[in-house]
């Protein structure tokens, strides 16, 4: 980065990003806010006409919804490296902006509310198809039913190599632990380059 006097650093900085995806109200912003060094910032995008053609409005009350908000935070890793965490709306009607948000991401956390599994299908499909590594975080709400991670794995139809953890997005330590699970997963891929996970079965197609 160049300073006010025009001098330039010799090394170019590195910026990286992780994506936190999931359905509406699953805890993305809370998750990001727990570990961000700045209060989460909000950026917005408008649903375009083209996107509306593919918009499944059957399950939302607000048919004229035209703006989608995305919250993000940042973590300074070193003087030369900054990590951004983007909370990404996981519904398929926002797919038109996923590439811009997600391509180049180191990896993703897909947050799941076990009471609404279906809200996470699109995000899982997307990361699988783009070969973006991800882990699953089951966000435990006070009234969430108890559920075994293997049942979640079966419900989502994801490969056994993909980590699934129970966590609470309101607890800083648990958010950190979830992110570390993701980073460990990424690091493990360096030593054992993974085979592309099998595509999800047709039975999960809606």
């Amino acid at each position: 980065m160049s300073g006010p006097d025009g001098t330039r650093r010799t090394r170019r900085a590195t910026s990286a990003k992780l994506v936190v995806a999931g359905g509406f109200g699953v805890g993305k912003t809370t998750f990001v806010g727990e570990v961000s060094e700045i209060p989460p910032l909000r950026t917005e995008e408008h649903l375009t006409e083209a996107a509306s053609d593919h918009d499944d409005v059957s399950q939302i009350d607000q048919k004229t919804s035209t703006t989608v908000a995305m919250d993000f935070g940042r973590i300074t890793v070193t003087e030369n490296m900054v990590l951004y965490l983007f909370g990404t709306p996981g519904q398929s009607r926002f797919a038109f902006m996923w590439d811009k948000i997600c391509l180049g991401a180191l990896g993703a956390v897909v947050l799941i509310d076990v009471r609404r599994f279906e809200d996470s299908f699109a995000a899982v499909d997307y990361f699988e198809s783009r070969n973006i590594p991800f882990v699953i975080g089951i966000n435990n709400f006070p009234d969430s039913p108890e559920i075994d991670v293997e049942d979640v794995r079966e419900a989502l139809g994801i490969d056994k190599s993909i980590p699934i953890v129970h966590m609470d997005a309101t607890e800083t330590e648990e958010v950190k632990s979830t992110l570390i699970t993701l980073i460990d997963f990424l690091m493990a891929r360096f030593s054992t380059p993974p085979q592309r996970p099998p595509r999800r079965k047709d039975l999960l197609k809606r």
Binding site: R12, S15, A16, V35, I180
Partner: peptide, 22 residues
């Protein structure tokens, strides 16, 4: 001002350390 292309094992370790230290 930044590149997003290179991320090796050492970089990931730095990220891991930063998260663990938050």
């Amino acid at each position: 001002e930044s590149t997003t292309t290179t991320m090796d094992l050492d970089d990931l370790q730095l990220i891991r350390d930063a998260i663990a230290g938050l």
